[in-house]
Computed example of a mutant assay.
Amino acid sequence: MAGEILDNQGRGEAGWQWPAIHPEGRKFGVIAGAIALAFLLILDWEIIGWPMLALTGGIFAFFRDPERVVPQDDRAIISPADGTVSQIIQVEPPRELVGDDGSGHDGLSDGAITRVSIFMSVFDVHINRSPIAGTVKRLVYIPGKFMNADLDKASDENERQHILVERGDGIVIGFTQIAGLVARRIVPFVKPGDMVAAGQRVGLIRFGSRIDVYLPAGTAPKVLIGQKVVAGETVIAELGQQKLIEGVAQ
Rank of each mutant, 00 (worst) to 15 (best):
L53P: 00
L215D: 07
V165W: 05
S155D: 11
G199T: 08
F63E: 02
A220I: 08
A61W: 12
E13K: 13
Q87E: 11
A231H: 04
I205H: 06
P93D: 03
F119D: 05
P143V: 07
V70C: 03
I178G: 00
S103V: 10
A38C: 10
G144S: 06
T234C: 04
G247E: 10
E246Y: 12
D169Q: 01
G174E: 09
L97M: 15
F123K: 14
F123N: 10
V202W: 07
G232I: 00
G10S: 06
A32M: 13
A198Q: 11
P143C: 03
P80C: 01
G49D: 01
V98S: 09
W50C: 13
I127N: 10
V91E: 07
M120E: 09
W45P: 00
P93I: 01
H162V: 11
R201P: 12
G104H: 06
F63C: 01
L224Q: 13
G199D: 03
Q242D: 11
N8L: 10
V172E: 06
P143L: 11
E13R: 11
P131R: 07
V213D: 03
T219E: 03
A237P: 11
G170F: 05
I42N: 02
Q250C: 14
A183L: 03
A81G: 04
S209W: 10
D150I: 09
I35W: 05
S103F: 01
F119A: 12
G10A: 05
I163D: 02
V136R: 11
E96I: 10
G15Q: 04
Q250K: 15
V229T: 05
G226A: 02
I35C: 10
R201N: 10
R68M: 05
G99E: 14
S130I: 07
A220M: 04
D7K: 04
A61E: 06
G102F: 01
L53M: 14
S109V: 08
R160K: 07
P80W: 04
Q241Y: 15
A133H: 08
G49T: 02
R75S: 12
P66Y: 05
G3L: 01
M1D: 13
G102P: 01
P71F: 03
L6D: 06
P188A: 07
S86E: 01
I89A: 05
A32I: 07
T114E: 13
L6T: 13
V140S: 11
T135E: 15
N128R: 13
V223N: 12
P80L: 00
R185L: 08
P23K: 08
V202R: 04
Q227T: 09
K137A: 07
G199S: 03
K153E: 09
I21A: 09
G57Q: 02
N148Y: 06
V196T: 13
G174H: 11
K137W: 04
G12Q: 07
W18C: 07
G111K: 14
